[in-house]
Simulated assay, not measured.
Amino acid sequence: MRISIDIPDNIARTAELTEAELLREIAVLLFQQERITLGKAAQIARMHQFEFQHLLANRDICVHYGLEEYQADMKSLRENNWR
């Protein structure tokens, strides 16, 4: 699914948000609400996962890292031949 959001220019200017900043804010919000994983949030924010973790740390947002995320990370590491 692809979602497009049309925000009038005057509202975007008033909020003083660029498209990249808005995407980051949406990603942070969804991650905080535990609606998406860290990896998915980083994708939405168009950031490397480590950069997104740094963003969260700067905002004092805990990274809830459960078994599911650990298993997904391990699978990704194996698939990319990380040792």
Rank of each mutant, 00 (worst) to 15 (best):
1 M>E: 10
1 M>Q: 09
4 S>K: 13
5 I>S: 12
5 I>N: 09
6 D>Y: 10
6 D>S: 04
9 D>E: 15
9 D>S: 15
9 D>G: 01
10 N>M: 05
10 N>Q: 04
11 I>P: 02
11 I>T: 06
12 A>V: 06
13 R>V: 03
14 T>L: 15
14 T>K: 15
14 T>D: 14
16 E>A: 14
18 T>Q: 10
18 T>R: 08
18 T>H: 08
19 E>V: 12
20 A>K: 13
22 L>C: 06
25 E>G: 05
26 I>W: 00
26 I>F: 15
28 V>R: 05
30 L>N: 06
30 L>T: 03
31 F>C: 00
31 F>D: 04
32 Q>C: 14
33 Q>V: 01
33 Q>L: 10
34 E>A: 05
34 E>L: 00
34 E>I: 02
34 E>C: 00
34 E>V: 02
35 R>N: 08
35 R>D: 08
36 I>N: 09
36 I>H: 13
37 T>H: 07
37 T>R: 01
38 L>P: 06
39 G>R: 01
39 G>N: 14
40 K>E: 13
41 A>V: 02
41 A>Y: 06
41 A>P: 01
41 A>T: 08
42 A>P: 00
43 Q>S: 07
43 Q>M: 04
43 Q>V: 06
44 I>A: 03
45 A>C: 03
48 H>Q: 15
48 H>I: 04
50 F>S: 13
50 F>E: 12
50 F>R: 07
51 E>A: 11
51 E>G: 02
53 Q>Y: 00
54 H>T: 07
55 L>T: 12
56 L>V: 08
56 L>M: 11
56 L>R: 08
57 A>I: 08
59 R>N: 07
59 R>Q: 14
59 R>W: 04
60 D>V: 01
60 D>I: 00
61 I>E: 08
61 I>W: 11
62 C>D: 09
62 C>P: 08
62 C>F: 04
62 C>L: 11
62 C>I: 05
66 G>A: 07
66 G>L: 09
66 G>F: 07
66 G>K: 12
67 L>W: 09
67 L>F: 14
67 L>G: 01
69 E>V: 01
69 E>A: 03
69 E>C: 03
69 E>F: 03
70 Y>L: 14
70 Y>N: 07
71 Q>D: 07
71 Q>Y: 00
72 A>D: 13
72 A>H: 08
72 A>Q: 14
73 D>G: 00
74 M>L: 14
75 K>H: 03
76 S>Y: 05
76 S>W: 10
76 S>Q: 13
77 L>G: 12
78 R>K: 14
79 E>R: 13
80 N>E: 12
80 N>R: 15
81 N>E: 12
81 N>S: 10
81 N>R: 13
82 W>Y: 15
82 W>N: 07
83 R>A: 10
